[in-house]
Simulated scan of single mutants.
Amino acid sequence: MTTPPINARFAALVLGVDSHGLAAVRALNQAGVPTYALDKDTSLPGARSNQFRRLFSTPSFEAADLLPVLRQVRQQLSAYDEVALMAMNDRQVEVIGRHQAAVTADYRVAWIDQADTILRLQRKNELETHSRQHGLNYPRTVQFDSPGDANLAMSMRFPMIIKPVRPLSSFKTQMAANPADLDRWLQRYQADLPILGQEFIAGDDRAIYFGALLLERGRLLFGMTGRKLASYPPSRGQTTVAETVDEPQVLQLTQQFFAGLRLSGPVSLELKRAPDGSFWVIEPTVGRTDFWVGLCIGAGFNQPLMEFQLATGQPVTMPTRTEGCTWYDSERDPTAYPRLALNNRCLRPLNHRQVFSYLHSSDWRPAIHAVGRRLRSVVLWSF
């Protein structure tokens, strides 16, 4: 893509330097954006990056800690007319959305004018109604409000996926093989109630697809599709390997899900293809890029840059083309690439460009630090 000159009066503050935040920092910096970062853990490999101008610290990303730190950081960035604030996880999005007046006094957020819609779509108990209203398949679902509610699933088909209604609770998903298993999980996670139970759609990780969009007041600026190749835990966890694919139906269903909402910024939708070929909504990501944003960036779809430009009112840089890409979360699964390379008997699996969460030709220190941390953990574990 051809990037227009970046206005030096504008800067970006990325909330986090985990592998997700690091991908955004690199994408912004290499496009010429003055980029800063904020994290509670300055020991992360991403904290060693040479791609941000300064790493600020916060005690936590909870509102009580984050909001005053954001105020202080903005005072230190007073040389800039506008600073775009870019969330990297759902809790950050929730804090920004619930405290939008305080945040927007200092920062620009691409999606803030539709914060209520963003907060609504974050709650998983809203998704069944929304999906069906938009003509999409959604797995049969039941909500458990107390630890003794397992009997509500008597008519449901097992195995069942359970997930908390509120984002970033103490667990992401679990699998209940039978009613007794479900009762055990509800007792264990009662602090995370309410919890949703969904009938499991058959298929492994490779049956999970996603559409990634960049919207401006509901208008599609650009979109692409991909699918999981692996996740942890398998079939129900966070993506660890993903590839770009050409799936027009996934792109169309993703647009259909977000139709009429007038959202701005990056959004995505995860869908699962059932054995009969039908697609079923798993969950959306709103208010931020997804954890696998490195896949989009590597393919030529620079979502962080486009989000920054929307937030600060600048012309948006449109991708001129995209290329095949395979992305690896080498933080959670450092053996993913060698396994795939061995299975495909080549160093360029799937004939795609290979992108890694830490390894980067102009930013070596995060990868070196990540390898060092991994080696230390192996040595300590062996003793």
Rank of each mutant, 00 (worst) to 15 (best):
L152C: 11
A47F: 07
V355E: 03
S361A: 14
S170Q: 05
A341M: 09
C346L: 08
I195L: 04
D39N: 11
T312Q: 03
R48E: 14
A84Y: 01
R353I: 04
A11Q: 03
P4M: 01
P248C: 04
Q187W: 07
R48F: 13
Y232V: 15
V371G: 13
R48C: 12
E216K: 11
W185H: 12
G237R: 01
S43K: 12
T42R: 14
T317C: 02
P59I: 12
S382V: 10
H352V: 08
V83S: 08
R120F: 09
G372H: 09
L186W: 01
R54H: 15
G324S: 12
K40L: 11
S78L: 07
E323A: 13
Q30R: 11
P338F: 09
L44M: 11
F222Y: 15
Y36P: 00
L85V: 02
I118T: 02
D276R: 04
A180W: 10
E62W: 14
L66R: 04
G32C: 08
A87G: 03
D183N: 15
Y337I: 03
T141P: 11
L168D: 15
Y36I: 03
S19I: 08
M175L: 15
R339G: 11
I6E: 03
G203V: 05
F56K: 03
T326F: 06
